[in-house]
Nucleic acid binder design. Structure first.
Lengths: 253, 253
DNA sequence: GTGTTGCAAATGTCAGACAATTGGAATAGC
DNA sequence: GCTATTCCAATTGTCTGACATTTGCAACAC
């Protein structure tokens, strides 16, 4: 009894089934289980975890829906190949950030995705941003500004990063396109990982703040070209901080 | 090996639970159930469909994982707001294509997404495409070519469209970026809908074929700029066929 | 009028049994 | 000896029935 929820870090689903799903996901994402491996039978999982088989099946069905495992009657439950993982899902994205953090090329691929798309996102946003969108951007920017001065401790940089991603999220949403809105929502944990890593290694956040301000102003002024340039510069610096690009801001005017 | 289940494209999950999930999804996606509506209780669904409550719960859990419904003990199962739908999932994308076909701005938003991204995808592909990637593109192109001449019947255009999307899918995969590969996999049904609609209204498929050939050649020659131009022209024509753009191919050489 | 209690409805969990599927082992046929 | 068939154990899929927990609301006490 007194089985209080001392865990619940990712704390996703309801309760019993969700905890087991989290535990199994951790095993998969940290590499303890690799594609092709077979999980213990449902009856065994139920016995070892002191829960009913129905709850076990609930957890396994979640993992199956997300493409992480495959179940076949008579065969058992096996871990799927990486390409089958439906990792464009917020839950999966969260698990990756939590358990597979600086692993594989995920960090690189997400960053490359941003480099490719965000300048165009900014262009679209400049054409379509409503007053409400500008407000969301400004609020995020203000939080970034407020957390810049207290930049000494690393903990404060987390607040800065939280506001940072809220800023970028507002830009994605300003496109008023369902696909972009969904993508930023789904990739949020992964993007947050990118931003946090970048901001933790960055020597100076003031310049980052200034670049974000320029992007915000460009969108406000409906200057598509300026927005494109500003977004490109932000990503260029991020790439430098991450070690993906050589020159931080070669075309800095 | 790579060939998965050929049948039951829409019929997703195993059996009983999957059928009910499909049926409920249809009600939601065709508008019979709108966000905020409450579904019948599990016991009632079990009774009316002559299946066990366990199977009903299986179906409902799938819909819940996909963000389409929310379940709360004591309150029931309610349809979620549209923005909560995890429609960047192949199953949801399929349901949209099947049941919500020419509805909402989904068609427009997916097309806009392609217009924005595919030129850049083509640029990346031109830089990174391997021999295997080129092979996949060529095979798809050959099928398109084979189905062009027999363009009289509408049924043949379906084969053309199938090959069309396989062609674009190969380009996305040629970026060798996990995010892009996932996105094209997920959006496949929606993109297929866009392509089919476009190809059915297009007067002439021969020109479309020629534009695709140019894109393929540009990628083969690692000519990023030419690939960008070729992709832009394909999408421009598609937009015209869909009625989203005025001028089909003003810079047609 | 306000706060509390109790109840009905619905989902969450449990337990046990049987059905369906799968892969391999044992067996029969040649 | 080799192949084809049959049988069987393991595992997931489904069914049934029961109880636990949560929720919203109505009845009630003050």
């Amino acid at each position: 009894m007194t089985n209080t929820a001392e865990i619940s870090k990712t704390g996703n689903s309801k309760a019993v089934g969700g905890l087991l799903a989290d535990e199994l996901a951790k095993l998969v994402f940290d590499g303890s289980l690799v594609p092709g491996d077979t999980l213990p039978p449902e009856t065994e999982l139920a016995a070892t975890h002191q829960i009913s088989r129905a709850s076990v099946r609930s957890a396994l069905q979640l993992l199956e829906t997300l493409g992480i495992v495959a179940r076949r009657a008579g065969r058992g439950t096996t871990v799927q190949e990486f390409r089958e993982w439906n990792f464009l899902d917020s839950q999966v994205s969260q698990w990756i950030a939590d358990y597979a953090a600086p692993n594989l090329g995920v960090l690189h691929d997400v960053f490359e995705f941003r480099v490719t798309t965000e300048p165009l996102i900014a262009t679209l946003a400049a054409k379509r941003a409503t007053a409400r969108d500008l407000l969301a951007m400004e609020e995020a920017f203000n939080v970034m500004e407020a957390n810049w001065e207290r930049r000494a401790s690393l903990g404060e940089r987390v607040s800065f990063s939280q506001a940072d991603i809220a800023f970028h999220e507002a830009i994605y949403r300003a496109t008023h396109n369902l696909v972009w809105a969904q993508i930023v929502h789904i990739l949020r944990p992964a993007i947050l990982l990118v931003i946090k890593t970048s901001n933790e290694t960055a020597e100076e956040l003031r310049e980052s703040l200034e670049r974000h301000r320029r992007l915000m102003e460009a969108i406000r002024m409906r200057d598509s070209d300026a927005a494109h340039v500003a977004a490109t510069r932000i990503l260029s610096q991020t790439g430098y901080d991450l070690g993906f690009e050589e020159t931080p801001g070669e075309k800095e005017t």
